[in-house]
Design a protein around this nucleic acid. Structure first.
Lengths: 113, 113
DNA sequence: TTCATGTATTCAAATATTAGAATATATTAA
DNA sequence: TTAATATATTCTAATATTTGAATACATGAA
């Protein structure tokens, strides 16, 4: 999970409400598929599809206990990501010097205007 | 940038190599469209499209200097995100107790196995 | 005004993602 | 064995994303 391409794949797969919810649930501990169905309002096949996508991206894995497939977090990247997803941010960064109405300002580079 | 939906939109728009590259460039300071073309190997129209997507997600904004459109970072969320995208992570989290070969383990919940 | 440059928009084609339905597989219990 | 439960897979339709080509628009220079 240290090559840029892998991280981009991870971001792509994470950028979905059901999958964020699954990952947050998993950050609390091991869960089986039926556990996810209890709080996600989607079909079982769809839960499986999301789990499969997360697994193929290397973000989660599972073990088996009887009939239950027990999923757990595998990627440390996810923990940091979930943290900033939950974190509160100020609305905007302090911007560069420019007029918010006319949108005029000064280009700092050496290119011809 | 504090509602979950907005963050998910942001993740979706960020999960693309060209857009990550644009954002990393912008984390260094203000750049105009031609600056991006110098290091991205994509067409001008495509650069504009990516910038437009980033802007609509509220991640960047621009000011104008003559003929140049000068873009800058607007969302503090991006800075944290770029940081974890660049950060190195250990391969895997310490997993729960289970056999890596048979994939057997014990479900911690109270559901019937 | 005209020309050149910087940038955005529109359109279309290729490709990818998403979700439901139906079905398949695996395991436990009876 | 059979039945029931837990989960995965396959297929399909709808929708979204991505890109290039062409074109439009805006500004500064001549």
């Amino acid at each position: 999970m240290n090559k840029l391409g892998e991280k981009i794949e991870a971001l792509k797969v994470i950028a979905h409400p059901a999958r964020i919810a699954i990952l947050e649930e998993l950050s609390q501990g091991v869960k089986c598929v039926s556990d996810f169905q209890d709080f996600l309002e989607i079909r079982q096949s769809n839960v499986s599809q999301h789990l499969s996508a997360l697994r193929h991206a290397g973000l989660i894995d599972y073990f088996i206990d009887g009939r239950l497939r027990c999923y757990f977090l595998k990627s440390p990247f996810i923990l940091d990501l979930l943290e900033i997803v939950k974190k509160d941010y100020p609305c905007e960064l302090p911007g560069p010097d420019c007029c918010p109405v006319t949108k005029k300002g000064t280009y700092p580079g050496d290119r011809r205007r």
